[in-house]
Design a protein around this nucleic acid. Structure first.
Length: 522
RNA sequence: GGGCCGCUAGCUCAGUCCGGUAGAGCAACGCCCUUUUAAGGCGUGGGUCGAAGGUUCGAAUCCUUCGCGGCUCACCA
């Protein structure tokens, strides 16, 4: 063995040894007879004597996660996607050469093992290895077996190690998949059609947000990554797809935080002949279905709160919430000057920009709401009837044209869903777009962009419809008790890792930074 | 962008207040050990202390700037 202490070099030397012995360290396939989970569920409870009568051969494959060399025997644990099983190799069974090779396998290597089952003195189901093969040689050591991988930065940058070493991380993502599956099943059962609409849009509409910009070479056209699928989904409803939903990504070119990732996943749905009250019903039923499927309960803890999703959920108007929960007097809320003073007392400042008086007032109300009401909405609460100026795509209430038929759902102090009765009056929609365009040209980068085709589509007729958007990442955070959105997204967006290329090439950091193939985009 | 905290061996961490030869456990390497399981025993190697400057006889430690990350405030749905 080489004398070097560099673990990476040591393993490369082992790799060469194997090749020199005529062994392919990266073979193509391995025939597996059982998953480890199948073996343990079937045989872990059988007494040892009965295991000895089993004549069928057991063949398993997995990653070596622990290795205990004991004289002329070796114990290890092999892990596959379904579980982990102890394997036991003996010098007298395998023969000298093979045993020598086996004892030099590293934790992390993928192995295929065939043999018989037995139980050790401590009663652990174990595979007595008769044949063993290397399936993939690792060149880097895994993080430590006992403490695992703790460094948060490494966990996010090298999620594969996080998944490998921290079982609870795997659980979160398994649960994420279960949540999405439950949502999909629920929507399909309600006769919604699952659709996919473009990620690349010529006009980034459907929400108030800054988009990512890109360019299509062949079309020589500027395109945006979508900030919402809303307008395309409503076009589909115009086209007669009366119930549609999409589970997919949105992109917003804004700040990052524990609740914001530049790309995030939403469920968005549209239901013809329904209004926002129907959608509230739908939302309640959907989230209860998900909680029951995934957690098996409507009560659960998350981030220190005990939450109860048992319907019906509280419904409160935007203004009542500001009065009852925010503690503001109703006449203060309705008077722009007094509201501004009250907001200033909470260190809330009015947004800059040339807004119409009603819009400026509504925007300030929204900020006050966010600061003084939102964090206090712990149990599921539908906040309804938002100022119309905040909702350029929502239908005004028949009873009160000042407010939109809109709700947002809050659980544990976070916005989880947003929905409204869709505005389907094309002329009114055009007026709203014109006002947004005016704000846009006055400097509001997040005002909605005019979308002439969308108005044209409405002119062909959109049935009354209730739309819904649910932030799936935040829902997953809620149901997995995660503090940060980065814990529920496999590869959260981070700054470029310094010196990575240098490490892999053995170059200096300076050389890495100046090496142009590191940055093909510049 | 502001504030606070972190960055030391492959991993997990001491050492920083109060400057004086860079440590431990796991992992690795060698030897012993044929039912172990954080196996055990004996031995060995392993570090640009995130980077660059500065102060000092002397810096992981003090100062400055920068990088990356976390939390938080601001901004932002």
């Amino acid at each position: 063995m080489s004398e070097t202490s560099d673990l990476h070099e040591q393993r490369k030397a082992k790799l060469e040894e194997l090749r020199a012995a005529g062994i392919n360290p990266y073979p193509s396939r391995y025939e597996v007879s059982h998953t480890i989970g199948a073996l343990t569920t079937k045989y872990a409870n059988l007494p040892g004597e009965e295991l000895q009568h089993l004549r069928e051969p057991f063949t398993i494959a997995g990653r070596l996660m622990a290795k205990r060399l004991m004289g002329k025997t070796l114990f290890g644990h092999l892990r596959d996607r379904t579980g982990s099983l102890q394997v036991y190799a003996r010098h007298d069974t395998l023969g000298g050469d093979l045993f020598q090779r086996v004892r030099r396998f590293d934790v992390g290597d993928f192995l295929g093992c065939a043999g018989t089952l037995f139980k050790t003195r401590t009663g652990e189901l174990t595979l007595a290895v008769e044949r063993i093969e290397l399936l993939s040689k690792t060149l880097r050591p895994l993080p430590e077996k006992w403490h695992g991988l703790r460094d948060v930065e490494t966990r996010y940058r090298q999620r594969y190690l996080d998944l490998l070493m921290n079982p609870e991380v795997r659980e979160v993502f398994v649960k994420r998949a279960a949540i999405i599956r439950a949502m999909r099943e629920f929507m399909l059962a309600r006769d919604f059609l699952e659709v996919e609409t473009p990620m690349l849009q010529p006009i980034a509409g459907g929400a108030a947000a800054k988009p990512f910009v890109t360019h299509h070479n062949a079309l020589n056209r500027r395109l945006f990554l979508r900030i919402a699928p809303e307008l395309d989904l409503k076009r589909l409803v115009v086209g007669g797809l009366e119930r549609v939903f999409e589970i997919n990504r949105c992109f917003r070119n804004e700040g990052l935080s524990t609740e914001h990732n530049p790309e995030f996943t939403t469920l968005e749905s549209y239901m013809a002949y329904a209004d926002y009250a129907d959608v509230m019903q739908l939302t309640e039923e959907l989230l209860c279905h998900v909680a029951e499927q995934v957690l098996g309960a409507l009560q659960f803890g998350s981030q220190g709160s005990n939450l109860d999703l048992t319907p019906p959920w509280r419904r409160i108007t935007f203004e009542d919430a500001l009065v009852e929960i925010g503690g503001f007097a109703r006449d203060v809320l309705r008077d722009p000057a007094r509201l501004e003073a009250a907001a200033a007392a909470h260190a809330i400042v009015k947004e800059r920009g040339a807004f119409e008086a009603a819009t400026a007032h509504a925007k300030l109300l929204a900020k006050v709401f966010e600061a003084c009401v939102e964090p206090r909405l712990i149990q599921p609460t539908f906040v309804i009837d938002y100022p119309i100026a905040l909702c350029p795509l929502a239908k005004a209430s028949a009873a009160n044209p000042e407010v939109a038929e809109r709700f947002e759902l809050f659980i544990n102090g976070r916005e989880l869903a947003n929905a409204y009765s869709e505005l389907n009056d094309p002329l009114e929609q055009r007026r709203r777009f014109v006002e947004q365009a005016r704000q846009r040209s006055a400097g509001d980068e997040e005002a909605h962009a005019m979308d002439h085709d969308f108005v044209r589509a409405l002119e062909y007729g959109l049935p009354p419809a209730g739309g819904l958007g649910i932030g799936i990442d935040r829902l997953v955070m809620l149901l997995t008790d995660s503090a940060s959105i980065r814990d529920v997204i496999f590869f959260p967006q981070l700054k470029e890792e310094p010196r990575l290329g240098a490490e892999l090439r053995g170059e200096s950091a300076e050389a890495a930074w100046s090496n142009s193939d590191e940055h093909p985009h510049v």
